[in-house]
Design a protein around this nucleic acid. Structure first.
Length: 154
DNA sequence: GCCAACGTTGGC
DNA sequence: GCCAACGTTGGC
């Protein structure tokens, strides 16, 4: 059982959009970074905990709790020439980009990035490190517990 | 819109 | 395999 933080731009898919989707579940399309892809393809298992994070928006921060809801499978947008995420080097036989489904468990209060940064217990979070811009980062069990049991109870 | 930091590309 | 140039991310 592992834990992750996954960034989504609310202009693309917000926590409310994900909640409105069937089964509160969305396919995590659009990842075009190998490290982030590898986390989904190689390291995630169904049931892993996910911090659903809003990025590139007025109030960046954690917006809810979710979970990995599928095994990895190809991101269909890579095959679609009309898609912003089209990849000419990907084929059905040798897909390049894999994703998982993510199911929202709970919309929480928005825990702003600024609050995360001010929390000493979270100083080592990967997503908070200088220069970190990965859209998917691992979260330790201690960080997960602290966020769930302390920050989200405020 | 700026820009620091990082990732990717491609010539050599 | 190196590395300069370019592209992207994402907070501010």
């Amino acid at each position: 059982m592992r834990y992750w933080l996954m960034k989504s731009e609310p202009g693309e898919v917000s926590i409310d959009d994900a909640l409105a989707a069937p089964n509160h579940t969305v396919a995590w399309t659009g990842v075009r970074n190998y490290q982030a892809r590898n986390f989904m393809r190689d390291a995630m298992t169904v049931g892993d905990g996910v911090l659903f994070y809003h990025s590139s928006c007025a109030e960046p921060g954690i917006a809810g709790l979710a979970e990995v809801a599928s095994t990895p499978y190809p991101d269909e947008t890579q095959f679609d020439p009309a898609s912003h995420y089209f990849d000419a080097k990907a084929t059905q036989e040798t897909p390049r980009w894999m994703l998982v489904d993510v199911r929202i468990r709970e919309k929480t209060r928005l825990v702003p990035l600024s609050e995360l940064r001010q929390t000493p217990e979270l100083a080592d979070m990967v997503v908070l490190q200088k220069g970190s811009r990965l859209s998917i980062t691992p979260v330790t069990v201690d960080e997960w517990k602290f966020i769930c049991k302390k920050l989200l109870k405020k």
